[in-house]
């Protein structure tokens, strides 16, 4: 464990808490893409199957359970409890266009052609693009509430911090994993445009509004 990874994990946890609190306090999931949340739930359930086979640390097990549970809880809140507030008219991204290519790519490019390894690889590929329906929703409505922006910033920072973690591990532990690194790079790049708007607008107290 190094500081970049710890900060990355905490940032990820913060993003999830912000989102759940926003939905719970406002009793509404307006402006949030249910499609992205479904993708994240698929990402965590397929990646953390090793919970049943490998024990790494109490921290690792605890975080994995939290990520699976909170992603399922978010989907439940959006599609069941606060279904009436869900913005389904704008949330029209076709997630099969992300799921299927991620799965095919995982079958083609992986470290080992075994079920658990392919599912792990699939989850890494899918995570890198899972935010696209959310970014699509924001671009369709042309704006995002501040709280949604904070959520996106925390979520984007998480993989960005992991990039520094991988650079650190490359030098300190002589370890690297190209699948995770390339996917993490793609994931972080997808947030760049949003990061720019967040820093130039949201941090100055303005609402995130896209140019017409």
């Amino acid at each position: 464990m190094n500081i970049f990874r710890l900060l990355g994990d905490l940032s990820h946890l913060l993003a999830i808490i912000i989102l759940l609190l926003k939905i719970w306090k406002t009793r509404s999931c307006a402006g949030i893409s249910g499609k992205s949340q479904i993708l994240f739930a698929i990402v965590y359930t397929t990646r953390y199957l090793d919970l049943f086979t490998t024990f790494i640390s109490a921290y690792n097990t605890f975080m994995k359970i939290i990520f699976i549970a909170t992603s399922l809880a978010t989907v439940f809140l959006m599609y069941v409890k606060f279904k009436a507030t869900y913005d389904h008219n704008h949330d029209t991204f076709r997630i099969e266009f992300l799921i299927l290519p991620a799965f095919v790519l995982a079958l083609l490019i992986n470290h080992e052609l075994s079920p658990v390894e392919v599912l792990w690889t699939f989850s890494i590929y899918l995570e890198s693009v899972a935010i696209l329906p959310q970014l699509f929703l924001v671009s369709k409505t042309g704006e995002a509430e501040s709280i949604t922006s904070h959520y996106l910033f925390a979520l984007g920072s998480y993989r960005g911090l992991y990039l520094f973690n991988w650079i650190y591990r490359y030098y300190a532990e002589d370890h690297y994993d190209l699948i995770a690194i390339v996917a993490g790079l793609v994931q972080t790049v997808l947030y760049c445009d949003f990061f720019y708007l967040y820093i130039t607008k949201v941090l100055k107290g303005k609402k995130l509004q896209l140019p017409a």
């Binding site: 790494i56 975080m63 370890h175």
Partner: peptide, 10 residues
Amino acid sequence: NRYTIVKDEL
């Protein structure tokens, strides 16, 4: 071994 090293990440 990649299995023990990378799988410790989240």
